[in-house]
């Protein structure tokens, strides 16, 4: 039996904790602090008065923020849904033993490894309204009917959603695959003997057993999707007509473009709280498995 040496554990944890405190915890506390003040960078003469919850109350009444919130919800719902669906499909494929499985596995992982800056440029090229290959595949050489994907409010949002699905489905697949791999092969063998067809096997063996993995993937994806920023920042900068002005981009603009540090921080804090609530709810659902390997 190993001695539970609390001092040693504390010492081992310390370096990581220090880095996290300095670079994450302190900034988080700082953001909370800023969000209770009115700070306008361009007008230092106004000082930085404490305004209590004023920023949050304004945020509740802010129609632009509400619109951004609404868009973000759409983004989160659609991307997580399709990412899990496609991820499940990819995971089931890769899980099969067949010649070329390694190659396919590598293929599937590639979108996930590509920098967002690159994939955003890539989609801008593919969605181009004059020479984009997506238009060509739909309309052929008839350039007159080409759709300017990034110029219409609905299609602009869809384009960003597609770009995100493409990039992160493989990450979802990875997490789901991890769940698939712990399902004992014997279960399938037994089911086969019983004459269960593919769908039945999936329905009664695979599905119940990978549900926890799916939930974890869902958690990761939701948390990430709520904080989406890069894609909109590079592809559309929030336009047209605010159609892709996701919440975090709105917070960025308030903070870094307009200089409303307090208000922008309030936006970030709200995103944090939403994400935290979702995470806690998930953990309640998944149970105490966070640290348990063999459940």
């Amino acid at each position: 039996m190993i001695r539970k040496d609390q001092h040693l554990y504390l010492a081992l944890l310390l370096p990581a904790i220090i880095v996290l405190l300095l670079f994450i915890a302190a900034p988080i506390i700082n953001s909370f602090f800023l969000s209770f003040h009115r700070i306008i960078i361009g007008l230092p003469q106004l000082k930085t008065p404490f305004v209590a919850l004023d920023n949050y109350l304004q945020l509740l009444k802010d129609p632009i923020a509400r619109h951004s919130f609404f868009i973000t919800i759409i983004f989160v719902a659609l991307t997580t849904f399709f990412e899990l669906l496609i991820g499940l499909f990819l995971a089931l494929l890769i899980h099969h033993r067949f010649p070329g499985r390694g190659a396919l596995r590598a293929c599937v992982l590639i979108p996930w490894a590509i920098p967002t800056v690159v994939s955003a440029q890539m989609w801008r090229y593919l969605f181009n309204d004059a020479y984009g290959v997506i238009n060509y595949m739909i309309f052929g050489a008839n350039t007159n009917s080409y759709i300017p994907w990034l110029a219409l409010p609905t299609t602009a949002l869809s384009s960003i959603i597609v770009a995100d699905i493409w990039k992160t489905s493989s990450f979802a697949a990875l997490l789901i695959l991890a769940g698939l791999q712990v399902i004992p092969e014997e279960l399938y063998q037994a089911a086969k003997v019983d004459g269960a067809i593919v769908w039945q096997r999936f329905r009664h063996i695979t599905w119940p057993l990978i549900r926890p993995a799916l939930l974890i993937a869902l958690l990761f994806r939701t948390i990430d999707a709520f904080r989406v920023f890069d894609l909109a920042f590079v592809m559309t900068q929030g336009g047209p007509a605010d159609a892709t002005n996701v919440l975090q981009l709105y917070g960025y603009k308030k903070m870094f473009v307009e200089g409303w540090m307090g208000y922008g921080s309030a936006v970030s804090v709200c995103i944090f709280i939403i994400v935290l609530v979702i995470a806690v709810a998930y953990v309640k659902m998944v149970g105490r498995r966070l640290l348990e390997a063999n459940v």
Binding site: A26, I223, F229, Q248, I271, F272, A279
Partner: peptide, 23 residues
């Protein structure tokens, strides 16, 4: 361990844009 881990994971949930300024 659970409590510490939860705290650490919560760190990962804050929007990055907001920590950029203080960092």
């Amino acid at each position: 361990a659970q409590i510490t881990l939860m705290g650490i994971l919560a760190c990962a949930m804050f929007p990055q844009i907001a920590i950029v300024g203080p960092v």
